[in-house]
Design a protein around this nucleic acid. Structure first.
Length: 272
DNA sequence: CAAGACTCCTGTCAGC
DNA sequence: TGCTGACAGGAGTCTT
């Protein structure tokens, strides 16, 4: 489920439980994720204190005294605090056991597209991190910047904003939503959009992501409390998952197409 | 370099 | 009820 808002609400939910705590041990039940979980992860982390959890793009960075551990949740991953009598299920691949009171951070990931890697002391130079574009909620992410990067690009604007080297954190849902809000047709060539419209798109992205983070925040207490209540992702989505239903703006039926194998939903009347 | 296809894996759901 | 195929919130890697 994780696009930027999910990852950020996960970070915000976990940080108060874990920051400052010492890691006791790790239980790795399944090391075959996107890449194999490093053999020596346990050694690297042994009795190390977790200083803080940060986020870059859709990556969570766990800053330990001994170095940085990177976690990506892929398509289906989640991290939760679970109680110590909670039996591990089929897809509960790793437990990180913290502190004297045995706080357990559990990684669950049915599809195993997620990632757990050790980056050591110089995380920023890692290939997964060193080519990333700006954070969408930073001031450094501007309409002008997007406009400049888009010149001579024939790629569709939707794929353009999902490219993590252009701007980070935007996945399929929020790409659809932001383009709807900005009134831009997802298939339009990135290189043929005016600076003014990129300005509008950047605002739409920021507003959409902030709203989603706020909503994630309200449900996160349940999330971290570990009861895993369903219905967690109910959001006010304007287009995603609403193919054929009326456009919230004009009432025309929303159209569905494929772009690079991903579902795109848009209003042919409002988005041009 | 850019763009598109392919790939990893499992759960869910529509259709028969 | 059971089977089959399509599809799902990601993104690195390979091919053209």
């Amino acid at each position: 489920m994780p696009e930027l808002p999910e990852v950020e609400t996960t970070r915000q939910g976990l940080a108060p439980h874990l920051e400052g705590q010492r890691l006791n041990r790790i239980i790795v039940r399944q090391r075959r994720l996107r890449w194999p979980v490093p053999d020596d992860l346990s050694t690297k982390l042994d009795q190390s204190r977790l200083l803080r959890i940060s986020r870059r793009a859709k990556y969570l960075l766990f800053h330990f005294e001994t170095g940085v551990m990177l976690v990506h949740l892929g398509m289906s991953g989640s991290l939760r605090i679970v109680s110590n009598n909670n039996e591990a299920g089929k897809h509960d691949h790793i437990d990180f056991i913290f502190g004297n009171r045995q706080t357990i951070l559990r990684l669950t990931d049915p599809r195993r597209f997620g990632t757990v890697l050790w980056l050591g002391k110089a995380p920023d130079t890692h290939p997964l991190l060193n080519k990333l574009g700006p954070e969408p909620l930073d001031d450094a992410f501007t309409g002008n910047g997007l406009y400049r990067r888009s010149r001579n690009r024939t790629i569709a604007v939707k794929q353009f904003i999902m490219d993590q080297t252009i701007v980070t954190g935007i996945g399929n849902i929020y790409a659809n939503e932001a383009l709807f809000k900005a009134g831009i047709r997802p298939t339009r060539a990135a290189g043929k959009i005016s600076p003014q419209r990129y300005q509008k798109l950047v605002q739409a992205i920021k507003i959409t992501l902030r709203a989603a983070i706020r909503q994630g925040g309200t449900t996160l207490r349940d999330f971290v409390g570990g009861d895993g209540r369903p219905g967690y992702f109910k959001q006010q989505l304007n287009v995603y998952g609403r193919s054929g239903l009326p456009c919230p703006n004009c009432g025309a039926p929303l159209r569905e197409i494929k772009q690079s194998g991903r579902t795109t939903i848009f209003c042919a009347h409002c988005q041009r």
